[in-house]
């Protein structure tokens, strides 16, 4: 089990005068699957982006820790795996090239065996040298999981993880979540009942 800790302290967000959510407090430690749910427009994706450090909260703070050591924002990106419907990979490159570039930019060794194994798990190995632009939406969604898992993140953030996936793809994802969550924290933002059913705790967001 990981000693990763994620704390949200009085987190609020508004866009201009529109309040999205306010005063959220949560604390996730070690491992397990946690959920964020709520109606459309309640701020699920916004909260997950704030947790990832991509957006800033309007008030409050998000603290990421490993043991007692607080992780500085500059180092956060290498500890987080992120999947969302609005995540787009570089379509002019192949899956393999994308993964190689990401490893270099993250300054980690490109693990060819791991890349091949993940591509195999998500049924993309045969298409690894094709440009991402030629993939179907389901294949692109599966590719995002490989992008999120390649650097062995401590925290996995999944925004609508099963969108665009067929039953086979969904089963692969659920198996992956089960495997990863035994050692690390997985947070799912979704409205799908089958996704939320995996979670031990869920933050319910209301629409203001």
């Amino acid at each position: 089990m990981s000693n990763y800790q994620l704390c949200g302290e009085a987190v609020s967000k508004n866009f201009g005068r529109r309040l999205i959510f306010q005063n959220l407090n949560f604390r996730f430690t070690g491992s397990g699957v946690y959920g964020i749910s709520g109606p459309n427009g309640a701020g699920k994706s916004t909260l997950i982006k704030i947790i990832a450090g991509v957006n800033s909260p309007s008030a409050g703070k998000i603290i990421h820790k490993i043991g007692d050591k607080v992780i500085i924002p500059e180092k956060l990106h290498n500890l987080i795996g992120f999947i969302s419907p609005y995540l787009v990979l570089y379509e002019e490159f192949s899956a393999w090239e994308n993964l190689e570039f990401f490893a270099r930019i993250r300054n980690i060794k490109f693990d060819k065996e791991k890349a091949a194994s993940l591509l195999g798990d998500f049924l993309l190995y045969d298409r690894k040298d094709d440009q991402v632009r030629t993939y179907s939406s389901g294949m692109k969604q599966r590719m995002k999981f490989i992008f999120a898992l390649m650097h062995s993140p401590e925290l996995l953030l999944l925004d609508e993880p099963t969108s665009n996936l067929d039953d086979e793809g969904k089963n692969t994802v659920y198996k992956m979540i089960e495997r990863v969550s035994s050692e690390r924290i997985v947070i799912i933002a979704s409205n799908e009942r089958t996704d939320i059913a995996l979670c031990t705790e869920t933050i319910m967001l209301a629409k203001f």
């Binding site: 990832a52 991509v54 924002p73 500059e74 180092k75 990106h77 987080i80 992120f82 969302s84 609005y86 995540l87 787009v88 990979l89 570089y90 379509e91 990401f102 930019i105 993250r106 992008f147």
Partner: peptide, 15 residues
């Protein structure tokens, strides 16, 4: 291309 988020997830702003 919509890849800004991808970039934000793989590197720090200064990089």
């Amino acid at each position: 291309r919509g890849t800004t988020l991808t970039l934000q997830l793989i590197a720090s702003p200064s990089t």
